[in-house]
Design a protein around this nucleic acid. Structure first.
Length: 576
DNA sequence: GCCGTTTTCGGCCCGACTGTTTTCAGTCG
């Protein structure tokens, strides 16, 4: 898959053009092309110029350039620009508060060619005095460098969302009559977020702003205006607040939920129809008359579109689908009938079977699959054959007394370094569900990892591949496994892939989940819970499913128990 | 550089805040 490399060189060309003071629309064309290349699941290296040309935002010229990059590893204009502009300026562009104009100014006037040189200049206090740069700006640049050095952190949704909800609760308490909502990437349930966006509307905007900048846990107030303020929390997360009038709440919510790309598309559509959309409402261009904006639906309605769920707003085909009336009926938390990946005390879980069953029933589930680790995972007290049989007996007993609820006998069997499974087929055949996963040998070459997963899928008793790519957000990249091959193999054998709902995993990702759906593969949305509270991670798994365009029919654990049992049975014995 | 339900040329989304200005440029989302 060459897409990330292609996208990154296109982005770099855009940066370099910006530093050259080029036509902003030409720059935007490169950025849009880069984002489109990133978003499509198909490998651009396998596409001819014709097919590339058919992609949105990619014309004849860019199709040719992409082709050149795939074939030769270089693009002419990229080389030329690099000759003119030192690479270090790209780094300087990453400093918050420094844009292309400032970067260029620093280069032209002070010959700054790297972040180090900029830092030295700031330390010596010789920046102030340049046109448009005084003490304040110099200080902001100093801070910006610090921020960049610290790493422009993205936070896992699982960390940001609880903080965000806490902030909204505090604000609501402080100004009870105002209306608050989360917006931005958190509302779209993106797996990681850079900041927290809060929208507010009320009769006393000043009271809202005051409450906001006075929130406990504020490290610094970054910005404070009549309608827009920003703080940095002690957790290091930036929180942006926008305050609007009550009758603009819907338009503002739409606007600040984004994504930026989604909104740009909508506003382009609007202008073609003689309308203008901004955070205050929908307006008729001709006479400035306001057509709506109190509710979010007003915005879509004005364009003749159905409401688009926030999770889909990425300009990844949702606008076309909305126009054609083909938006998916997304799966929701209420559709989930059970959890198919849960641990108990038998291995490294914290609770015994009864407690897990009680917690699953409390969440109105119809079933839960007990999937403890197998013996290969010694650190997790993985189950030997003998102990699996002991657990089977315990589950049989539990099912005899449970009314209207089923406990599935399962295992999370380890896929060993050579692709064999950690327990014999004869034993696996006695279980209701077999979840297979990789817990070792992450450093193996991609080919070997792919082979292991493919071998596991081919085992007749394996039902689901758990956390298929092994990523840990902010800690570990996905292993270099060929997911397209894994998806193809799962499709061939009718096996399911997991969307692991554990907030640091969220694995499969939304993009891979969508690719799997396209191949007709069932997805299991599972929490991998080790303590009871983890069962509530299901909301994160469902959000990935929704961002992957999944409908209830695509998700294995929306099935009622009898159908699920039949489905799991049908997966067996499909040897190639 | 892309694109067309007013266009194959002439547009291309829109507004807030900061810091430096005296009316605005730069940056950001």
């Amino acid at each position: 898959m060459k897409n990330p490399q292609v996208a990154s060189v296109l982005h770099e060309i855009a940066d370099l053009l910006e530093l050259s003071g080029e036509n902003p629309f030409r720059i935007r064309a490169y950025r849009r092309a880069a984002m489109n290349v990133e978003a499509i699941p198909k490998d651009v290296a396998a596409m001819g110029e014709e097919e590339l040309f058919s992609l949105p935002g990619i014309g004849k010229d860019l199709a040719h350039k992409i082709r050149q990059f795939v074939d030769t590893g270089r693009i002419d204009i990229h080389e030329e620009l690099q000759k003119k502009i030192p690479r270090g300026l790209l780094e300087i562009l990453r400093v918050p508060g420094i844009g292309p104009k400032t970067a260029r100014l620093l280069f032209d006037r002070k010959n700054v060619k790297s972040l180090e040189e900029l830092e030295a200049l700031v330390r010596s206090g010789r920046l102030a005095g340049l046109p448009g740069i005084q003490a304040k700006t110099e200080e902001n640049i100093r801070k910006g460098i610090g921020q960049l050095r610290k790493g422009m952190e993205r936070f896992p949704l699982g960390k940001a969302l609880p903080i965000a909800r806490g902030i909204v609760d505090l604000l609501q308490e402080a100004v009870p009559r105002a209306r608050f909502a989360l917006a931005g990437s958190i509302r779209r349930w993106k797996d990681t977020v850079r900041d927290i966006d809060v929208l507010a509307a009320g009769k006393k905007p000043e009271a809202i702003t005051n409450a906001f900048v006075g929130l406990p846990g504020t490290r610094e107030v970054l910005e404070r205006g009549a309608t827009k303020s920003s703080i940095l929390t002690v957790d290091g997360i930036q929180v942006d607040l926008r305050v609007v009038a009550e009758d603009s709440f819907g338009a503002a919510l739409q606007y600040f939920t984004g994504s930026k790309e989604h909104n740009v598309r909508l506003r382009e559509m609007a202008s073609r129809r003689g309308l203008k959309i901004n955070e205050y409402g929908v307006f008729r261009e001709a006479d400035g008359r306001r057509l709506g904006g109190r509710e979010e639906e007003d915005v879509y309605k004005a364009l003749g579109l159905p409401f688009v769920p926030p999770e889909l707003r990425e300009d990844a085909g949702e606008i076309e689908a909305a126009i054609e009336g083909k938006l998916p009926g997304l799966v929701s938390l209420a559709d989930i009938r059970g959890d198919l990946h849960v641990h108990t005390k038998w291995s490294d879980g914290a609770h015994d079977l009864d407690a897990v069953v009680g917690a699953a029933r409390a969440r109105k589930y119809d079933y839960v699959a007990i999937t403890d680790h197998s013996k290969g995972l010694g650190v997790a007290r993985g189950l030997t054959e003998e102990r699996v049989r002991g657990q089977i007996a315990e589950i049989d007993a539990a099912n005899r007394k449970a009314k209207g609820f089923r406990v599935l006998k399962g295992i999370e069997v380890d896929i060993r370094g050579d692709g064999t499974l950690d327990l014999p087929d004869a034993l696996l055949s006695e279980l209701d569900i077999v979840v297979a996963s990789v817990h070792s040998g992450f450093r193996q070459p991609g080919e070997q990892l792919t082979k292991r997963l493919v071998a596991a899928i081919r085992n007749p008793y394996v039902s689901v591949i758990a956390h298929p790519t092994g990523r840990l957000l902010g800690e570990r990249e996905a292993y270099p496994v060929d997911m397209e091959a894994v998806i193809a193999e799962a499709a061939r054998h009718g096996k399911a892939l997991e969307i692991n709902a554990y907030p640091l995993r969220l694995d499969l990702s939304d993009a891979w989940a969508r690719a799997a759906k396209r191949r007709g593969i069932p997805l299991a949305v599972s929490t991998d819970a080790h303590i009871l509270a983890n069962l509530d991670f299901m909301q994160y798994g469902v959000s990935i499913a929704r961002r992957g365009w999944l409908e209830p029919g695509d998700v294995l654990n929306t099935l009622p128990f009898p159908k699920l049992a039949r489905r799991l049975q049908a997966m067996r014995g499909k040897r190639a």
